[in-house]
Amino acid sequence: MKLLSKFIFKTILGWKLVGSFPKNEKKYVLIGAPHTSWKDFMIGVLVRFATGEKLNFVGKKSLFKPPFGFIFKWLGGSPVNRQKSTNLVDAIINVFNENDEFRLAISPEGTRQYVEKWKTGFYYIAKGANVPIVMFSFDFGNKQVELSEPYYLTDDMQADFNHFYQFYKDIKGAKPSLFNNKNLL
């Protein structure tokens, strides 16, 4: 799977990977942006398999039931029980706390549509789980995926979001008009 994914990503699609996943971090939140097309998920899956990095995502518990639930688990999914009295951020923090290794891939925009401001759940998840954030870009303008070094959050949310802005400010998504890279918070 690794060789086939590399071949498709690099040779057939002509993309490249800039940077690498952190080797010394067993837990982090990976934010992928801009998320403007269904193609982003496919690029992300190819990178995951090409690098061999174990990445996770969360989904509602019902997605993980037969007959197709095994596919979501195979792709790194973890079910979250929303029926309990915890909110989604707390439920995901619990997933981090229950696992020795967990790398959550999430879109800070929360949708493929244009948004005025990013959702902040990823930020509070990283804060609550005490894990860094790694930024992952889908740069269709340069046909590359770029990864940042782990970023450890400060006590200044605006400064943290300014750091994210600097990373994503020149990135062109599959549908550039759907990415607001001027006002993340």
Rank of each mutant, 00 (worst) to 15 (best):
K39T: 10
I12N: 09
E146G: 12
S78C: 12
F161P: 00
R103I: 04
F138W: 08
A174H: 13
A129K: 03
I92W: 01
E116W: 00
E101I: 12
K26G: 09
L63M: 13
L88M: 08
E53N: 01
M42V: 15
S148T: 01
Y114L: 14
E109T: 00
P108V: 05
F164C: 05
S62T: 12
K73G: 02
S37K: 00
A126Y: 03
P67V: 02
W74C: 12
F9R: 07
L4K: 03
A126C: 03
K16M: 03
L55P: 02
E146Q: 15
K54Y: 04
L3E: 14
I31Y: 01
E101V: 13
P67C: 04
R48E: 14
S85L: 04
P34I: 07
F179T: 01
N97H: 08
S148D: 05
L185I: 14
G32V: 15
T111M: 10
S137W: 00
R48L: 12
P66K: 10
Y152P: 00
K143G: 07
P66H: 04
A33H: 03
K84A: 15
T120I: 06
G173M: 08
H163G: 12
E25D: 07
S5C: 06
F96T: 02
Y124E: 15
I93H: 06
R103T: 06
P132A: 08
